[in-house]
Every structure is written in structure tokens, then in C-alpha cells.
Design a binder for these strands. Structure first.
Length: 813
DNA sequence: AGCACGCCGACT
DNA sequence: GTCGGCGTGCTC
């Protein structure tokens, strides 16, 4: 028996609340370190756990030995543990699950149960009458073993334990535990470079000389491009390596969104405003925690400030973390950082494969790079000596994760900065109400950029009242005559037009002309959208599709009237108005194919596109230097959302799209069509006046006790059975009331709203209910939820009806 | 999460 | 009697 040499505290990579104490055998004691993973026996199986530190609880009555240590180095620096602990507390999520979602996915190992057939089982399958479900299972495993969970999904129903046990007892199958998961290999491109320039004198001289000649002309070359130049090159490489003529190195190849390698750039001269902002921030970097809101109109050069501060910070030997919103294509900000810092940055975005992601993670961890840049989940980048965090476009909702661990990367950035004594910069042309409010309370310092670089003027914005505009026949037009005229003028000047409509498809409200019922998704409680190009009705929520010629499911009539409008309809209208123009649509339907976005961006750059029509995808992240006219087809879509942030989102979206106009050396113009020309968020967008928008909106929030004057936690209750879900939601609601009655400290200051059916009552086959908890006191609200969950474990962990706890919810429908 | 246990109604 | 479905509890 091995000697116990230490006790460690381990968080398990499973949704379990507790952490556990394990003993370390002598053979593994040298490998113990915070942040390394261990394989532990946990009940009936082996799972992955994370070492948190020495255990203080060595009196536990039953302590097992760890089985193995997985990593030769920690996967995160010990300095990140307080951050993980805070996340677990704040978002009410088990610590092990928090660490699991922080680390690159797909690296853990564990036991899974697999089912294998026996000779007796094979015999039964061919000769005996076997009950249908058991027959299905036997038939599936007759040639190979299957994980139990996968069998359930193959046969299309839950396979219960007792059935498996019975089949085991009959001697037909055996159950076995298989240890799965294997270490990820870092994925890199192999390069060769010259080490010696003399030539080997032997009979393969010509071939080897040719390789050396190629290498003489450049620093290094990837093996892929070398074999492109010389197809048989690889067969000569090993000799040259062995004898020290050439060397192999592993490199990542950086490409920009247009598919070309990025050229290195140099810092440009800065404007006075930029220099002032940098001076305001740089004094704090490396010294204290401080939060800044950098509010700068579009084109005012925020990125240049980020770059300069990043340079200063890494020059002092500190790490920098940059967050960018999730967009269709990796953003311009990332390209700029790559251009400035080359391979001194690690990039973490959604298009990376698991291996590539792990590779980037290792580069940060091993301190090969001082800068990490990426989307939401990059907030977990394992930078040890982190002193500067930048959140670009901080208002963007893609920073909020809406499943599993429902975190907000911007809020976590502030907390991570606080815990590490770092500086955090939240940058935006249209700050969130929350962030600007923090400025007014002194939590955050404000820096503003009011001028665009090179004194470019802001676009002029005209509002067209859609209630007043009808054509001669009295019909409403998607493109009103002022917009039509402006488009014609712009095209005449050989400039480009951008049309924005935040809804894809052709028509979003198909209605049966015979019986009047709307065409709805089978799985969700929303209208289908007609997509003419795809000849189908699509559900924008779950992806369900049905043929565009289908009859009304209610009365069978084939008279479907396609009301509503989307980008496809705009495209059709534009093509009939401007048959000569080259029109391209950019939305999720046209950009799913790999390289499609690149093609569109290229078309815009080389001016082979005259008119671009797009959804919010065109509103953010890309510079379109030759677009001088932006047409907003209908500004009201986001306004009608049943969400208290509808005005905020509308203002941000409109201001962002308008900012796309005239970023080159030509002034821009925006035509904004709306049914609500007097709505304050539309007027504020027209005047590009964030402050006036903020003043109006913050008064409204204060009046109704909405954030930032209160905190919210939403319980999202969902299940496949309508009645069951409703009953469950009602029970949770009763328990909320009961807890409030029982504990007087909850009587005041906590509002319980609901349970109510969610505005989107059914989605992807699940019925949805919600309870909204609101309070001015964050601590008390958290304590309430924690007690509610602790006292009602049965309600919170049931397989049929799920409850998700969403702290600071953003998506509330 | 994944599994065992123990309670209930339904059936050969 | 016992099969099979479901709620409950536990994991160092």
C-alpha cells in the first residue's frame, strides 16, 4: 500500500456543489500543484478534478487516493483561483463546473459505461423472441460496444438502469467502464529554415542544393509551400536536418480577414485627445485597480489607444487581455493587434479548432506571449501578471453567455481586474447604460473622444416618417422615395450604399388567407419566416424548416399570405429599382459557407459591390471605407421587443450602423426610416447624442426600479411537457413566497415577479416559464436564491423540468 | 452527471 | 408475487 504523503482539496469537473479531499500517494507527490488536473475515483467511476490546494479537511471519514496527475504544468496560474471562486459564488455555479468552462474544452478524461454483447446475447438475438427495445439494443451492439448514453439517443428513448441490469442478468450483455479522452495535440504549421549555407557534396546534390537555394532567398518557409514549389522536397529534408543544414520550427500562420498575411504596422501619430486619454490611463497601470470608460464616437481612434497602452504595459513586463465581441468574422480590432504585435499575441476565437485553442492556451500559459485577444471566453485566458484588461465595444450583448455558466464577460473583466490589481478599460461609441451609470456614481472614470481622426465629420442623419410616406397607389414602400433618390445619387458618384434591416428572410408573418391563422414553428411559439431563395419557411429560433409550398396546417388551404418583410424582400425591391447595380446581401443565410464573408468584404474593397444589404452583422466590426450612404429600412424592429433594454439596444444599433457611413475621406449620409420619428432613442441616434439618450433612459429606469437601480436574477424553468412545466414553475413560485414569509430579512427589498409563461412560451420543443427576482441589494438577492436552491434541492435538480439561474439576465424573452 | 436504492402501482 | 417507473440521495 502506498503511503499518504499529502492531502489535497479537489474540485470535480461535474455539477457538484462540494469540493473533496483526496490523499496523494508518495509516487505522485512531486507532481502536485494548484491548477493541475488529477484523475480521481469518484463514486463508481474515474473522473477529472482540479487541484485547488492543500486540504484543511483531512478528518473526512473516507478519503481515497488520487489515481494520477494529468498535466506536467498547471493549466491556470494559482492567482486565478480567487477569480474562479468569485464566479462560482456570484453566478451560483459549482466551482468544478466553473473551472471546466474556463479551460479549453475537450481535454478532460473520465469513465463512461459501455455495453458489449455476449455470445449468449448473439444467440438470443438470432434465435429467441426478444422484447422490441431489448432487440434494438442487442442489434445495435452486436458488432461493437457502445457507450450507454449514445445507445439511448440511437434507439430514441431513455434506457433505464433496470433494463440494463435485466439484460445483464440474462447473460446477454456486459457492462464495462471505459476510460475516455486523450491529450490534445497542439496544432501548428511546420517551417524549415537554413542553418548552414554550405552545400552537401554527394549524389543527391542537385535536389538538396535546390532546397538550400530556396531557403537562401527567405527566412523560412512552411513545408507545405516548399512542397508546392518542389513536390519531392520532403524526401530530402530528413538528411538535411540530420546533418544540421536546416532546422524545423513550429509556427502559427496569421491571416487577416481577407485571407492574406498581415503586414506589420507602426504606431501612427496620435491626436491630442488620444494622447490625453493614454496619459489618463497609463499612470494607473501596474499600480492599482482602476476602471475606465472610454467613450469615443465611431472613427475616433479607440483602437490606437488600446495599442499604445498595450505596448506600454508589455514593455513593463505585464500581461494584457483584450476582449472583442463575437462577430461573423474575426474583427478588425484583432487584425490591428496582429499587425502591431505579430506573434506576441495569442488569439482565442470561436473559429479555432479544439487543438488550435489549446495551442493558444499553452502559449499564454508558458509565457510565450504577453497579450491575449479574443471573444467572451477569453476572459479566462491564463495570463499570470495581468495588469491591463480592455473590453472593446463593451455594450455588445455577445459578452453575455446564455447557457451553462451564464456569465457576462464585461462584468467579469471588472472583477478580474479588481482581484489582480489591474486596470480595466471599457470602450464603446455607445456605452451601456450600466457602464455610464457607473461613471456617474464614481465607480468608473470617464474618458471621451469627441473628434474623429483626420477631422472627418460625422454623417448627417435624415429621418423619414414611414407613417407619412405612401406611393401614388397608397401602398407603403420598403424604400421610400427620399431613400431611392439618395441611392441613385450615391451610385451615380460611384460610391457604395449600405442598407440595414435587422431581420433576415423574405417575410416574417405568413398568414393563411382562408382561416387567418399564422404559420408557426412546430417546436417554438413563433411565426415561421419565408425564405424565398431556400424555397422554405424557416424558424429563426430552432432552425426548423418546411417547404414553401406547404398548405395551411390548420385548414389545408394553400392561400398563404406572406406578410412582413426581411432582407430578402429588400434585396428584391432594390434589384427592381436598380437593375444595373451589383447588389449583395449579408446575413446569416448568405454567410454560413466558409469564406463567404471574406468574399463580400473583398467585393466591397475592390468596389465590385454597389449596394450591400444586411442585418446587424453589417453594423459592427467592419470598416467599409467607400460606403457614403446608409439606409435604415425600418428602425423600429428592436424597439418593439418585450424587454426593458429595447430602447438601449435600438439606440446602440442605430448609432453603430450610422457610424458605418463615410469613414473614408468622403462625408457620409444616413437615411433613417421609422414609424416612431419622435421616439427618444431614435432622436438621440439622429443627433448622435449619447448623453441625451442616457438622461432620458436613466430616468425611466429609476422610475421603474430597473437596473442599474436594481439587480435581477431570473429563474428560467423549462420542460418538454407543458402541464408538468407549469406545475413545477408554480411550485417554485410558492417556495419563493414561502421563503420570503419565513425569513423576515427577505420581506423587504426583494420583489418576486411571476411565475409567468415566458414571452417566447415554447422554444426548441421546450415549454418555458420564468420567475424574475428584483432587488436593490445584490447581496440579499444572492442570499435569497442560494437559500431557495439549498432548501429546495428536489425542485432544482430534476431531469424532466430544468431550472436555470440567470444572474443579471440580458436575454429575458 | 450518473448511478443505486427504495417506494409504489400494474401485471403475467 | 416481481416488473418497471420514478423520486431521492450521494459522490472525499
Amino acid at each position: 500500500m502506498e503511503m499518504v504523503t499529502a492531502y489535497i482539496e479537489v474540485a470535480v469537473a461535474l455539477p457538484v456543489e462540494m469540493t473533496y479531499t483526496y490523499a496523494v500517494p508518495e509516487s505522485l507527490v512531486d507532481f502536485i500543484a494548484v491548477g493541475r488536473r488529477v484523475i480521481i475515483p469518484f463514486q463508481h467511476r474515474r473522473v477529472t478534478g482540479y487541484i485547488l490546494g492543500p486540504s484543511k479537511n483531512t478528518e473526512a471519514y473516507k478519503i481515497k487516493f488520487i489515481l494520477d496527475v494529468l498535466d506536467d504544468a498547471p493549466l491556470f496560474p494559482a492567482s486565478m483561483l480567487p477569480f474562479f471562486r468569485w464566479i462560482a459564488e456570484y453566478y451560483i455555479h459549482p466551482l468544478g463546473a466553473v473551472i471546466q468552462s474556463a479551460l479549453p474544452s475537450g481535454i478532460n478524461r473520465c469513465d463512461v459505461t459501455e455495453i458489449a454483447i455476449t455470445p449468449k446475447g448473439l444467440d438470443a438475438l438470432s434465435s429467441k423472441a426478444v422484447p422490441p427495445l431489448q432487440h434494438k439494443i442487442l442489434d445495435q451492439v452486436k458488432s461493437r460496444k457502445y457507450p450507454l448514453k449514445r445507445l439511448s439517443s440511437i434507439v430514441g428513448q431513455e434506457i433505464c438502469q433496470s433494463l440494463i441490469k435485466r439484460m445483464e442478468n440474462s447473460g446477454w450483455i456486459t457492462k464495462q467502464q471505459t476510460f475516455i479522452g486523450s491529450p490534445l495535440k497542439a496544432k501548428t504549421v511546420r517551417y524549415v529554415s537554413l542553418k548552414r549555407s554550405d552545400l552537401p557534396q554527394d549524389r543527391f546534390f542537385p535536389a538538396r542544393k535546390k532546397i538550400i537555394d530556396i531557403l537562401r532567398s527567405q527566412d523560412d518557409i512552411s513545408i507545405k509551400s516548399l512542397t508546392a514549389k518542389m513536390p519531392n522536397a520532403s524526401s530530402y529534408l530528413s538528411y538535411l536536418i540530420r546533418n544540421g543544414y536546416i532546422a524545423i520550427s513550429h509556427k502559427r500562420e496569421y491571416r487577416d480577414p481577407l485571407g492574406e498575411p498581415i503586414a506589420k504596422d507602426c504606431p501612427p501619430p496620435l491626436t491630442k485627445e488620444q494622447r490625453q486619454a493614454i496619459a489618463g490611463i497609463s499612470g494607473a497601470v501596474g499600480k492599482t485597480f482602476k476602471s475606465f470608460l472610454l467613450a469615443g464616437v465611431t472613427g475616433s481612434g479607440k483602437t490606437e489607444i488600446y495599442l499604445a497602452l498595450t505596448q506600454q504595459t508589455i514593455d513593463q513586463g505585464y500581461g494584457v487581455l483584450v476582449l472583442v465581441p463575437e462577430i461573423a468574422l474575426i474583427s478588425q480590432t484583432v487584425s490591428r493587434f496582429r499587425a502591431r504585435f505579430g506573434d506576441r499575441i495569442a488569439v482565442l476565437h470561436s473559429a479555432l479548432s479544439k487543438g488550435e485553442r489549446y495551442d493558444q492556451w499553452r502559449r499564454i500559459l508558458t509565457k510565450q506571449v504577453p497579450v491575449a485577444i479574443g471573444v467572451r471566453s477569453a476572459i479566462f485566458a491564463p495570463l499570470e501578471n495581468l495588469k491591463l484588461i480592455i473590453v472593446d465595444e463593451e455594450h455588445d450583448t455577445s459578452y453575455k453567455q446564455d447557457q451553462d455558466l451564464r456569465y457576462h464577460a464585461r462584468d467579469m473583466a471588472v472583477m478580474r481586474a479588481k482581484l489582480q490589481n489591474a486596470v480595466v478599460i471599457l470602450g464603446s461609441a455607445t456605452p451601456s447604460i450600466q457602464s455610464y451609470y457607473n461613471v456617474t456614481t464614481g465607480k468608473s472614470a470617464l474618458l471621451t473622444l469627441t473628434r474623429r481622426v483626420e477631422e472627418r465629420s460625422l454623417p448627417e442623419i435624415d429621418i423619414i416618417d414611414l407613417r407619412q410616406t405612401r406611393d401614388q397607389r397608397g401602398a407603403r414602400r420598403l424604400i421610400t422615395s427620399p431613400l431611392h433618390q439618395a441611392m441613385a445619387q450615391t451610385l451615380e458618384r460611384k460610391e457604395q450604399v449600405l442598407l440595414f434591416l435587422n431581420r433576415r428572410g423574405f417575410a416574417g408573418h405568413p398568414v393563411c388567407a382562408a382561416c387567418g391563422s399564422p404559420l408557426q414553428c412546430k417546436f417554438c411559439d413563433i411565426s415561421l419566416t419565408l425564405h424565398k431563395n431556400a424555397h422554405a419557411y424557416k424558424c429563426h429560433y430552432c432552425g426548423f424548416m418546411k417547404a414553401a409550398v406547404a398548405p395551411c396546417p390548420t385548414c389545408g388551404s394553400s392561400q398563404i399570405k406572406n406578410l412582413g418583410f426581411g432582407t430578402e424582400k429588400v434585396e428584391a425591391a432594390v434589384k427592381s429599382l436598380f437593375p444595373e447595380a451589383k447588389v449583395v446581401r449579408m446575413d446569416r443565410d448568405t454567410t454560413t459557407r466558409k469564406g463567404a464573408v471574406i468574399k463580400i468584404l473583398k467585393g466591397l474593397h475592390n468596389r465590385s459591390i454597389d449596394i450591400l444589404i444586411g442585418t446587424q452583422m453589417v453594423a459592427k466590426g467592419h470598416d467599409f471605407p467607400n460606403i457614403t450612404l446608409v439606409g435604415i429600412i425600418c428602425a423600429d424592429l428592436a424597439l418593439n421587443f418585450p424587454d426593458f433594454r429595447a430602447s438601449e439596444h435600438t439606440f446602440q444599433l442605430l448609432a453603430q450602423v450610422s457610424g458605418r457611413a463615410g469613414r473614408g475621406d468622403v462625408a457620409g449620409r444616413v437615411i433613417l426610416q421609422t414609424f416612431n420619428p419622435n421616439h427618444f432613442s431614435i432622436l438621440a441616434a439622429k443627433n448622435q447624442n449619447f448623453l441625451s439618450f442616457f438622461e432620458t433612459e436613466i430616468a425611466f429606469r429609476a422610475g421603474l426600479d430597473y437596473p442599474p437601480f436594481s439587480r435581477m436574477i431570473q429563474l428560467k424553468i423549462s420542460g418538454r411537457d407543458s402541464k408538468q412545466t407549469q406545475v413545477h414553475a408554480k411550485m417554485v413560485g410558492q417556495q419563493c413566497q414561502a421563503l420570503q414569509t419565513r425569513d423576515k430579512s427577505f420581506m423587504e427589498g426583494i420583489q418576486i415577479l411571476g411565475p409567468v409563461e415566458a414571452p417566447l412560451a415554447k422554444a426548441a420543443g421546450r415549454y418555458r416559464w420564468q420567475i424574475l427576482l428584483k432587488s436593490a441589494h445584490s447581496r440579499r438577492l444572492h442570499r435569497f436564491i442560494r437559500e431557495l436552491a439549498a432548501q429546495n434541492k428536489n425542485l432544482f435538480s430534476r431531469p424532466k423540468v430544468k431550472i436555470a439561474i440567470d444572474v443579471d439576465p440580458i436575454f429575458m424573452i
